[in-house]
Design a protein around this nucleic acid. Sequence first.
DNA 1: CTGCGTTATGTTAATTTGTGAATAACGATA
DNA 2: TATCGTTATTCACAAATTAACATAACGCAG
Lengths: 120, 120
Amino acid sequence: MTDKETNTNSKFNVEGRVWINSENCSFTGQGKIELIEKIKELGSLRKAAAEMKMSYRQAWQNINKMNNLSEKPLVILNRGGKNGGIAIVTEEADNVIVAYNKLKTAFDIFIKQQSEILNL
Amino acid sequence: MTDKETNTNSKFNVEGRVWINSENCSFTGQGKIELIEKIKELGSLRKAAAEMKMSYRQAWQNINKMNNLSEKPLVILNRGGKNGGIAIVTEEADNVIVAYNKLKTAFDIFIKQQSEILNL
DNA sequence: CTGCGTTATGTTAATTTGTGAATAACGATA
DNA sequence: TATCGTTATTCACAAATTAACATAACGCAG
């Protein structure tokens, strides 16, 4: 491991983003995955949005978009009822979360490697 | 190579972007690299911007930003003179282009691989 | 049937971002 | 000195994205 091969003290570093597309339309990204995870944790779209400091409207649009792009819905939103309503995360969403997290893990490693070999 | 391992006919695919940062400030990305390459080809910032259908203002700002973030300027802009002015791409810029293109090549491969193993 | 908290949706305001026009500065050349 | 095409910079406007607010719809509980 020589200075010729690595570059950990450079002022430059590599960054990037990854996401999953469905027919040229953004399906998931970091934010949407986190949103679903929060919904699963809290059982409420409104509470999840609040905790992420995201507007309820935007959160709803994100979920709605994903539900429409996927054959099976990822989050089932029911209004009215016992506590005013409930948001249920489906098994399909779990699959998406697993797939995205695998991608994200591999990507983080990729970025780290590329940042180290960056020759600037 | 079975259907369990690959996923080339899925309606989903992986996409992403990478760039090089300098102290939390975007240094280069695809667009800026292309801009520098065009300048090198045409010897003119204005012509390069026009060819990329980018406003001259934006192009100038991009180059100016990169020049300031780098110790040595990437593009030297001289006004006046024989043909009204000239834009010179430095050796430093060549190094940046090489570094970025290496990164981009590796990233394209990464994305292709991840798209193939995507399990959705 | 009333109250409650959530989902659903529209409207408007605010902020950011990009565009285009206009013009000054510049320096070799003729 | 006048010309030329480029770089440099400002200003006003447009477009697009985002934020904020308001309010209707819903269905269970009491």
